[in-house]
């Protein structure tokens, strides 16, 4: 991926870029899995945004009808639970409403952590790639080191120290994922900086910051968009894993991973507590992956598949 020329081409005119985008869109439109991903992502965003309207119940309300006499969750098949379309959870709350609201936590974490990771990753990767030398080397050594860190253990240690909350989870996940971005961006920038338009910018005396920001960054956009989309998938998964370990978003805010964590002791008595939130995670990750792949194919047709 690193040595391929960016399709945005040399010194492009606005018109040319429009053509490029139009081309990309045409390619994207033909990619059915990618379209499915895009539609599902849109749907998910809508669900998350309209959660208060769409959810049949308050996700935090613990109904007394939501527990059987033995104190177990109510399955969706009992007549009593026509109210609870997917059944209830271990506290007698409506599972469907919690899954709908859970989309919010998952997307918030996915997107914001991604923004953070992109910020750090692009900054460090681009700086290292452009400047090279010992600074670039030092940055990339550091990146390598962080990559060797067992991801989940690092996240657990961080989350334990920082005390879990939505903000902290975002920071922790961002702090874990940036290394990937940095490495990819580094490779791209290394290739781009030798190219003619960068040379010419340097010749007319543009500062390094200016060159990185105005000349190199636009060429990185396809990469950033693609890795950003894939990153959301990754972060949704990591959030779920952290929540599963009990160090995620705090109750009663529902998050899919947290729902699985709390529901897993019932996985035989009430398997739906685990099945539905897990399916939600899987579909979300799948959709973002498909979308990301589609974007890559559309934006970077020379990319080897």
């Amino acid at each position: 991926m690193t040595s391929q020329a960016s399709p945005l081409g040399e010194a492009m005119a606005p018109q040319a870029s429009e053509t490029f985008l139009a081309l990309a869109w045409r390619r994207f439109r033909r990619n059915r899995p990618a379209l499915f991903g895009a539609v599902f992502v849109l749907l998910l965003v809508t669900v998350a945004a309209l959660a208060p309207v769409l959810a049949p119940h308050d996700p935090a309300e613990q109904f007394s009808a939501g527990l059987t006499d033995q104190g177990l969750p109510v399955p969706s098949t009992l007549p009593a639970s026509r109210e609870f379309i997917l059944g209830t959870d271990q506290n007698g709350r409506d599972l469907l409403s919690r899954i709908v609201w859970g989309a919010r936590a998952s997307l918030t974490v996915g997107v914001l952590a991604n923004g953070l990771a992109l910020g750090i990753g692009v900054l460090l990767g681009a700086t290292a790639g452009y400047l090279g030398g010992w600074i670039g080397n030092a940055i990339m050594r550091f990146t390598d080191m962080m990559m060797a860190f067992p991801t989940l253990l690092l996240a657990i240690a961080l989350a334990a120290i920082l005390r879990p909350s939505l903000g902290i989870i975002i920071v922790v996940i961002g702090a874990v994922y940036w290394t990937w971005i940095a490495r990819v961006v580094y490779g791209e920038v290394m290739a781009i900086r030798e190219r003619q338009f960068v040379e010419s910018a340097r010749a007319i005396g543009a500062s390094s910051g200016r060159i990185i920001f105005w000349h190199i960054l636009p060429h990185l956009m396809p990469t950033i968009i693609v890795w950003g989309t894939l990153g959301i998938a990754n972060n949704v998964m990591l959030e779920a894993a952290l929540s599963y370990l009990g160090i995620g978003v705090q109750p009663p805010t529902p998050s899919w991973g947290g729902m699985i964590q709390q529901g897993q002791n019932f996985y035989r008595a009430a398997p739906w507590l685990v099945i539905y939130p897990g399916a939600a995670i899987m579909l979300t990750v799948l959709a973002f992956n498909l979308l990301g792949d589609g974007l890559r194919d559309a934006l970077d047709p020379y990319q080897r598949r």
Partner: peptide, 18 residues
Amino acid sequence: ALLGVAAPPFWLGLMFLY
């Protein structure tokens, strides 16, 4: 392959157990 990438491992494990 797509599903395999998307399924959270702890969830997959629980499903297999179940």
